[in-house]
C-alpha cells in the first residue's frame, strides 16, 4: 500500500479542502455550542474544549496541506503558467490542479480564522 495516493483525475479532489474547512467549522462551533449549553453533558473544563479545537485544527490543516501538495503535484509543481485554457487533457489536468491549490490556500486561512477565537476566549458567555 502506498502512502501518497497515485495521481487520480476526478473532480472530487477539488472539493477536499473546502469540505475539510466545513467539517472543521462545524466541529468548532457545534462543539463549543453544545459544551456551553450543557457543560455537565461532557463533564470537561473549557480548556478541554480549547484543546479539542486545537486538535481538530491541526488535523484539518494537515489534511488541507496534503490536499494542497497533491494539487501542486497535479499542477506539475508550477512548471506551466495559467491560464490553462486549451481544450486538451493536459490543460484540463493542470487547470484542475491549480484551482485545487488555490482552494486549499483559501481553506487553510479560513481554518486558522475559525480556530483563532479559541486562543483568546477562556470561558462560556452567560
Amino acid at each position: 500500500m502506498r502512502l501518497i495516493p497515485k495521481e487520480i483525475e476526478t473532480l472530487w479532489t477539488l472539493f477536499t479542502a473546502p469540505v475539510v474547512w466545513v467539517v472543521h467549522f462545524l466541529a468548532c462551533y457545534v462543539g463549543a455550542a453544545i459544551y456551553c449549553a450543557k457543560p455537565e453533558l461532557i463533564g470537561l473544563s473549557f480548556s478541554a474544549v480549547r484543546a479539542g479545537i486545537a486538535a481538530v485544527t491541526v488535523i484539518a490543516l494537515s489534511l488541507i496541506a496534503l490536499s494542497a501538495w497533491l494539487a501542486w503535484r497535479q499542477w506539475g509543481f508550477g512548471t506551466d503558467d495559467p491560464p490553462h485554457d486549451d481544450p486538451t487533457r493536459r490543460d484540463r489536468t493542470l487547470f484542475q490542479g491549480f484551482a485545487t491549490l488555490l482552494l486549499s490556500g483559501l481553506s487553510f486561512i479560513a481554518v486558522i480564522f475559525t480556530a483563532m477565537p479559541a486562543l483568546f476566549l477562556t470561558g462560556c458567555i452567560r
Binding site: 480564522f113 483563532m116 483568546f120 476566549l121 470561558g123 452567560r126
Partner: peptide
C-alpha cells in the same frame, strides 16, 4: 494580493479577538 491581506487580516482579527474578554468581562 494574497500574502499581505491574509497576514493583515489575521493580525486585525487577532487584535479584535484579544479585545473581546475585556469588552465582555463576564467572569
Amino acid at each position: 494580493g494574497v500574502v499581505f491581506p491574509a497576514v493583515t487580516l489575521c493580525a486585525l482579527l487577532a487584535y479584535a479577538l484579544w479585545l473581546m474578554p475585556a469588552l465582555r468581562p463576564f467572569a
